[in-house]
Nucleic acid binder design. Sequence first.
RNA 1: GCGCCCAUAGCUCAACUGGUAGAGCAACUGACUCUUAAUCAGUAGGUUCCAGGUUCGAAUCCUGGUGGGCGUACCA
Length: 509
Amino acid sequence: MKDNHVTLPTDNQEDLNQILRARRAKLAKLRELGVNPYPYRFEVRHRIAEILERFDDVCEKESAAGVGEHFSIAGRIITIRAMGKASFCHLRDDSGQMQLYVKKDIVGERGYEIFHLLDIGDIIGAVGTVFRTHTGEKTLRVQSFELLSKNLYPLPIVKEREDQVFDAFTDKEARYRERHVDLTVNLEVREIFEKRALLLCTLRRFLEERSFLEVETPILQPLYGGALARPFTTEYHALERTFFLRIADELYLKRLLVGGFPKVYEISKVFRNEGMDRSHNPEFTMLEFYEAYTDYHDAMDLTEDMLRECVSKVTGGFVIRYQDAAINFEVAFRRVPFFDLLHELTGEDLLEKSLEELQKIARLHGVEEPAMSDGKIYDELMKTHIFPKLAQPTIVYDYPLSLSPLAKKHRNGARLVERFQVFAGGLELCNAFSELNDPLDQRVRFEAQQRFRVEGDEEAPPIDEDFLRALEYGMPPASGVGIGIDRVTMLLTDQASIREVILFPALRT
RNA sequence: GCGCCCAUAGCUCAACUGGUAGAGCAACUGACUCUUAAUCAGUAGGUUCCAGGUUCGAAUCCUGGUGGGCGUACCA
C-alpha cells in the first residue's frame, strides 16, 4: 500500500509508470512553448462561490449582467471535457467549483494548445466573463488562463452524476497518510476542519469576552502531572536528562493562579502514551481554563453556556445529529450525582459498601477481576454501563475521592470530591473540579498516588515538589475545566472516529 | 496488547473448488466549437503488500512479517 510512489526515482524515466511519464512529457512540452509551469503569482480577484451567488438570479442564456465584467479566479482543475476547438473543465477553489469554457477563437491557437497540455489536478488561474450554457450551468467564458502549478502525480478521479458519486477516494489509510489528497478530493473532509477552526475561534472569543487570559506553558517538562496517564519521554541533551511531554496543562496553569492571574486558559496539544482507538489519539488538543474565586457549580454554568455557544456557532442550531441520535443542547443539561447513577444501575448505595461487597456487585455487572480499589470499581461500572449511554448533554458530579487527586474534598462529605464531567453522545467531553488548594491535603493525595505507583500503577503521577511549594504560597479558591477539543469536534461534525477530526492522525510508519 | 477481517492498475472494484490477472473511470493516439460520469474509434498500463513454503502450476493454500479496518482491553 504505502510508498510505491514515493520510492519512484524521478530522474529515471524508465522506472516511471506511463501516467507519470506522460505528465513529465507534457511539462517538457510546456517549457518548449515558453510556459513556466511554476510561475510566481497570479492576481486572484474573486472567489468562485461569490461569483455563483451573484449570478444566481440571472436567468438563462447569455447573462446581460455578466457581459463585459471580467472575473479572475484560481484553483485546481477537477474535470476536463476537451473537444477539437472548444473545451470545458471544472475549476475548484476553497469556496466551490465552477465550469470553465475555453474556446480556441478566444484564447488563440497557442492558448488552446497549452490548454490541451493541462491535466486534472493542475492549478490554474483564469480570467473571463460569466454566462450560462444551454443546460443552464453558470460558466466562465475564459479570455485567458495561466498555468500556476503542474500536477505530476495523478489525483483520484471522483465523478458525480445526479448526486451519485463514483469511485470516491475512500481508503482510510490512504486518506490519512495523504491528507492533502483527501482534502483536495473530498469536500466534506474540508468542512470538518473548517468547523474545527470555527470551534476553536468560538471558544477563544467566549473566554476572551469573559476576560480570560490566553497563556502558554511548557510542553517539555522535567516532571509530568495533572492527569492519570503514562507520558512520552524525550532526551534533553543539554541537560543530560530525560524530560516528559506534558499529559495535561493543569499544574502550570494553577501556578499562574498563585501568581495572580485570576482567569487563565490554554489550548494546546497534550500527549498520552497509550493505545489509540476511535476516541483516543496519543496527541490530542485540550482546552483548560481556570477561574479564581469560583467553585465547580460556577464552572458547570460556565461550561454549559460555553458548549451551547459552540454548538450554536458551529452548527447553526441547538439540536445536533450525532450517529443517528438527536442531541438537544437548548434545554438545561441534566445534572446528576455520580453515585445516583450507580444507584440506578445496581439498586444499591455503593458509597456505603465494603470493598468485598463492591467486588461482588461488580462481578454481577460483568467486571471480570474486581480485585481493585473501590475507586477503580466505581470507575469501571460507570465506564462500561453508564457513560456510553449518556446521549443527551449530562453533567455527572461528585466523584469518589480516590479517583481525583487534584480535586477539592466535598464540602459536605470527606469521601467525595467536588468534580464533574460532561457527557454527550456517549462521549466524555469535559472534566472539571473545585481545585484543591490546600497544600497539605495535596501532599497527602500525592503520597496516596505514590503508593499506587509503587504497587505498579503506571498511570499514577509522581510527587511534584515544585507544585506543592507553589500551593504553599497560597492559591485562591478556583474552579478548573478541561475540554477535549477533538471529542467536541467529533460531536459537532457527526464523526464516530477521532481520526476524522485530526488532520494527521497517528499512524504506524 | 488480544480476536476477527482486509491489502490486486493512478482511483473504485472483479477473477469459481489452485490453471498463469480483468472492467469502469484516469492515461496515451486520433475525431469533435455548449460539454458535464462528454461521446466515438484505437492503444498502452500489474513486484496481485513483503519474505519464505507446498504444488507441474499460487492473487488464490500454509508460515512469518508489514500496514490498515472493526471489536475488545487500556485510556479522567
